[in-house]
Nucleic acid binder design. Structure first.
Length: 263
DNA sequence: CGTGGCTCCTGGCGGC
DNA sequence: TGCCGCCAGGAGCCAC
């Protein structure tokens, strides 16, 4: 699930629940989510600290611990956060559990463990540089968007999903943006005219804003969106034709061949 | 440089 | 009912 809107919702959730509370206990239920980081180091860096504020960049959420030190959360395909009180209500697939001084817990939940929990030392800009991330999709301006995409040769879907060009869009929201802009996902970037590129930029902003407003919940999204219709029998809300389903870069891609014309 | 395939993982679902 | 293969909203790596 976690693309930019989902992670933004996680950020707001974290901000509303876990700030300014002393971390008393750190439990690692499965150390595979730590990758190269040792359990010992994670505990040493977290215990006794507080999360002062958080930042999101693309699909990453960074929780600030001390000056130039962050707890890094990446959610892979199935990650989320859960703040709760009672011990017996631990969510299934909790991999990391923090216990605060008020007795509440914050769980990093990840069924498939494709995400990562880490510690980063440095400024946010250093992190972005190390991960080679492009500008955040929610903050990029039109001139930068145009600049970054016009030098690309591949398909627009691949480009929009490329975190080095721009960070935040994943498979689902890329399909949504292409659908809203009526652009076929296989269109090669150089074949797009400025008007189409501008439309993609504007629709991207609208989609991201709407998705965050809907708490990234497909059921709350407008019926005119692709999201609520992908997967369940799948009919285009505009043409009412059956949605097409293809693979691009081995990712399932939904689109409407009536609205999004073959390049 | 871009694309497609494979890999890391777990678990739900449809088909037989 | 049970088992199996397929698939899933991420992303790094490698061969072509």
């Amino acid at each position: 699930m976690p693309e930019l809107p989902d992670v933004e919702v996680f950020k707001r959730y974290l901000d509303a629940t876990a700030l300014h509370k002393s971390i008393q206990k750190v439990e690692v239920e499965d150390n595979r989510v730590l990758r190269d980081l040792t359990v010992q180091k994670l505990k040493r860096r977290l215990r006794g600290q507080k999360i002062h504020h958080s930042r999101r960049h693309g699909k990453y959420l960074l929780a600030n611990l001390v000056e130039r030190e962050w707890l890094v959360l990446h959610f892979g395909m199935s990650g989320r956060l859960k703040y709760f009180k009672a011990e017996y209500s631990w969510p299934q697939h909790s991999r990391i559990l923090l216990t605060f001084s008020n007795g509440f817990h914050l769980a990093y939940v990840s069924q498939r463990m494709l995400g990562e929990v880490g510690i980063f030392s440095g400024d946010l800009d250093d992190f972005i540089e190390e991960k080679e991330l492009g500008l955040d999709a929610g903050e990029i301006g039109w001139d930068q968007f145009k600049e970054r995409f016009k030098s690309r040769r591949g398909s627009i879907k691949s480009a929009l999903m490329n975190q080095q060009i721009m960070a935040g869009l994943g498979n689902i929201y890329t399909d949504e943006v292409l659908f809203q802009a009526c652009v076929h996902p296989k269109t090669s970037v150089p074949d797009l005219d400025t008007k189409q590129l501008k439309s993609l930029f504007e629709k991207m902003n609208a989609v991201l804003t709407t998705a965050v407003d809907c708490q990234a919940d497909p059921e709350k999204m407008p019926d005119s969106y692709l999201l609520p219709h992908r997967d369940k029998g799948g009919r285009c809300p505009r043409s009412h034709g059956e949605l097409d389903r293809i693979k691009i870069n081995s990712r399932t891609t939904f689109f409407c061949s009536a609205c999004q014309r073959q390049p």
